[in-house]
Design a protein around this nucleic acid. Structure first.
Lengths: 134, 134
DNA sequence: CTAAATGCAAAGCATTTGCAAATAT
DNA sequence: ATATTTGCAAATGCTTTGCATTTAG
């Protein structure tokens, strides 16, 4: 499954070369911010406009193909929507890693204790990754 | 303990009337975004500048008196630094509530499974609060 | 063929900066 | 008395918009 053309169409978006490139880049990086994405897309489409990047990121996010992750003390990054997961940010190398955490128990606990119907949960851990650990 | 003058000084910040007002307002709201804060401070200091709000929020955040909470699909809010806690955002009334959640177990789990030294964790739950639940 | 997407330039917000005057300590 | 803070205006930066042209389906 690496057919971004179909993925885009399944989300009511035309599969333009710019969009396919965006998908390919995000898929490769896992997570990427707007500036870096623009820089990378330009390598392939010298004349791509930053406005096109924004328009596409917005359209793809609204159509639930991408999701935004807000990073503490950092710029937002975008990723391809996939099964629920959390994030870990290394404060030294700034790398972001997906992690699988059981948030279900927490969500249950909160739902009952606070009488709050939880729909989504965002968990971001910050610290130092193995590589950067001195 | 509601002596904001001392609190400010303890954080190497002069206790100006504008800052005392900011502290008072944030303390009252619990969480507030820049625009709303500006609006509220203006009620007391008609001529306060938005630049002053930004400068102070930045200084107070850097000096660990305030902390920023990034809200999914919303503007950042600021709160007075206190013991570790998480947040719950109602997608209907946009209200934000502090919640006490045991994230320690999760942090431990992740620290060992991923060999990652976790320093801080940010958890934001979104859903519908009791009042807004139809 | 038609609706949607692109690229450009301009517009619109958000945030920061520089500086003279005012203020906290 | 001095270093910091304030308020203003200008500058910078980020994101969106309008529109003519191009392109996907």
């Amino acid at each position: 499954m690496n057919n971004f053309t179909d993925t885009l169409r399944a989300h009511q978006l035309k599969a333009t070369p710019q969009r396919l490139t965006i998908m390919h880049i995000i898929n490769g990086y896992g997570h990427i911010n707007i500036d870096k994405l623009y820089e990378e897309v330009k390598k392939k489409f010298t004349s791509v406009s930053l406005a096109t990047i924004y328009k596409n990121i917005n359209a793809m996010t609204q159509n639930l193909l991408l999701s935004e992750v807000k990073i503490p003390n950092g710029k937002s990054v975008y990723e391809i929507v996939k099964e629920d997961h959390s994030h870990m940010v290394c404060t030294k190398c700034k790398n972001i890693v997906d992690i699988k955490v059981d948030t279900a128990s927490i969500v249950d606990e909160v739902s009952s204790s606070y009488n709050f119907q939880v729909d989504t949960s965002e968990l971001v851990l910050s610290g130092v990754c193995e590589k950067c650990h001195s």
